[in-house]
Amino acid sequence: MALPAATESKDVILEVSNLSKYYPVNQGFFTRQKSLLHAVDNVSFQVNRGEVLGLVGESGCGKTTTGRLIVRLATPTSGRILIEDTDVAEIKGQDMMEFRQKVQMIFQDPYESLDPRMTIFDIVAEPLNVNGIGTFEEREAQVEEMLSLVGLAPPSAFLFRFPHELSGGQRQRVAIARALVVRPSFVVADEPTSMLDVSIRTGIMKLMAQLREDLGISYLYITHDLAVARYLCDRIAVMYLGKIVELGNSEDIVKRPLHPYTKALISAVPVPDPAIDRPLPNIKGGVSKPIDPKPRCRFYDRCPESADSCAEAENPELRDIGGGHLVACHLL
């Protein structure tokens, strides 16, 4: 797959090329025949330093798997992930420690991502402890600084509480503090606001934006919500059944979507204004799973615009149609 040209000109922090992750699945109870679920299939993209890239898609599209591959919580079937020019797959031993300080992850569920038996202090200090950073006093200072940075002030009021004594929003702030306490340069944020209430959600979104400004962090922001992605991200990549179907600047994606799937996705988002009558999203059928998919376009079966030629053609590759707007569709 040809990578978009402008790779060298900008300072690229993450480069993902031809990344795939297949999971074996058992189809029938009695058959021994193994099938493969193509969770992530030949995905390539890059994130520039200081940038936020949104990875948007419906559940099961492979966006979370992509995030887990990048932080090495899972190993790719094939493909390459370069973070600051280091191949993630080849990191071993001492370098792993350095990698963990450079790349962090924020998880979706603030109720499950904090160990219930640890105090907030121990949770936030954990990355410092396991990497042997600083003396106890230095760690403590770091933790306190980080807690006030994420809006848990005064830190002393939170240090020795347990996760169950905090509200959902506060917990997610703790989770963010833990991810950022080692001052990573790249963070994978897996739907950090989707489990939170509206009034709390805005605070966390603003916090993420603020921390990006203050600490110069680059994010891969995984979400199912296009409106959130538009608010937080510079660029958006839309995933469908393990493939990126469209990638471009946030405003371009939201205002001028080109791929039929992106169009349908955008028109399905409810709007908080009863006066607006949204058109019916132009899409057929429902989501299936990419188990042993046919080599043609993944969206073919649901595509309202599909031509006969799409049925025969190979899966379309991402093409730059100008202005860094990439689309994978034969019809453009």
């Binding site: 300080q101 962090q104 904090l114 160990d115 038996r117 640890m118 954990e126 991810a179």
Partner: peptide, 24 residues
């Protein structure tokens, strides 16, 4: 997820077993 979080934090298998799994 907090086990994943500990792994991303850089915890070794030993650390994860001793500090997270056994206490729970």
């Amino acid at each position: 997820p907090y086990i994943d979080a500990a792994r991303v934090a850089g915890g070794s298998n030993f650390h994860i077993i001793v500090s997270h799994i056994i206490p729970n």
